[in-house]
């Protein structure tokens, strides 16, 4: 208790706000509090900045890219970056084996990566939440069946399973995204189920039942909003996972097909030049690394800010 009390003291006991405070500033204050805890994690702020930059680059790709991502220049095959001997200023990061500008391909690749991340996370989250809600709320044999199926999915190495799924569905970006979403979705099921089971015991749920709320209302209106914290964190981390898996599938030739400037696919195409032209492999790899790292850092920061121990609601 004493620790809780210390925490309460820390958060300003009672939090009784002055009564004249208009409603808008209350919301702003909640945001401010969120930002306070988030910004305590410096890495998360850097991650957020980098991620914002990636988003801007992806949105503004046609404007900032110096060349078309698919335009092949027969005069400029495997040109090194501009600071190396033989580099040209018009190809800042050099060109690949068929004379396409690597910088432009990376810039357009950001679009694919973000697109993949968003779609995969949306599919995985919505599916995972729905299944997890049912498993956690209904319990009993329904729960057992659902969770065993999820355990089976989790028992496979995720990339292998995605590979098998793509092999069945046929290679291509869309199928790769579906496969990755299916592979990621058990994490959301587990997380949702655990939160739902914990929240289900709380008094406010019982109170809603006493006033006559039905199961659907209890699940969606009463319980679900209180489970979102950890799900948001997991969604951010899955976002980076999705990008990584999609790149891996692309690298193995099962994801986006050439000439799509997807980062993983670019890596795959560059495989044979690893020893001769380092830039062809390095830059897509670095792009993946930076994006994934940035998103993971943001996820960590979110976890700190949304940690139920910090939030006293």
């Amino acid at each position: 208790m004493s620790h809780i009390e210390a925490q309460e003291a820390e958060a300003g006991v009672g939090e009784s706000l002055p009564d004249r405070a208009p409603q808008k500033s209350v919301r702003r204050q909640m945001l401010a509090e969120f930002w306070f805890y988030f910004s305590e994690n410096k890495g998360a702020v850097i991650g957020l900045c980098v991620f914002a930059l990636v988003v801007i680059i992806a949105l503004a790709a046609p404007i900032i890219a110096p060349h078309s991502p698919t335009l092949q220049n027969r005069d400029a095959l495997l040109i090194p970056p501009f600071w190396e001997d033989g580099g040209r200023l018009s190809y800042l990061l050099g060109t690949d084996a068929v004379g396409r500008d690597i910088l432009s391909r990376l810039i357009f690749g950001a679009r694919y990566s973000l697109f993949i991340g968003v779609i995969v996370v949306v599919i995985a989250v919505s599916l995972g939440i729905a299944v997890g809600l049912i498993a956690g709320y209904v319990g009993g044999w329904v729960d057992t069946v659902i969770m065993r199926v999820m355990d089976i999915i989790l028992a496979f190495p995720s990339l292998l399973l995605a590979l098998v799924l793509v092999a069945v569905l046929g290679p291509g970006l869309t199928n790769a995204m579906i496969a990755i979403a299916l592979v990621l979705q058990p994490h959301f099921v587990r997380l949702t189920r655990a939160s739902v089971m914990a929240e289900k015991q709380r008094d406010y749920v019982t109170a809603a039942r006493v006033v006559g709320a039905g199961p659907i209302r209890l699940m969606v209106v009463t319980i679900l909003p209180n489970c979102l914290g950890p799900l948001i964190v997991q969604a951010t981390l899955s976002f980076s996972n999705a990008i990584l898996d999609a790149a891996a599938l692309g690298f193995l030739g099962m994801g986006a097909q050439p000439p799509t400037p997807e980062w993983g696919t670019m890596l795959a195409e560059a495989r044979e030049f690893i020893l001769r032209a380092w830039w062809v492999v390095t830059f897509p790899g670095v792009a993946i690394l930076i994006t994934v790292l940035a998103i993971n850092l943001v996820g960590d920061g979110l976890r700190d800010a949304l940690d139920p121990k910090m939030k006293r609601s």
Partner: peptide, 26 residues
């Protein structure tokens, strides 16, 4: 019913108005 723990008995994601209106809504 009124519960013991006032911290757990109110849905943290609902505004007071929504909490009070829920019984009427249902």
């Amino acid at each position: 019913i009124v519960f013991q723990n006032p911290y757990g008995a109110l849905n943290p994601r609902q505004k007071v108005g929504a909490i009070l209106e829920e019984p009427l809504k249902i």
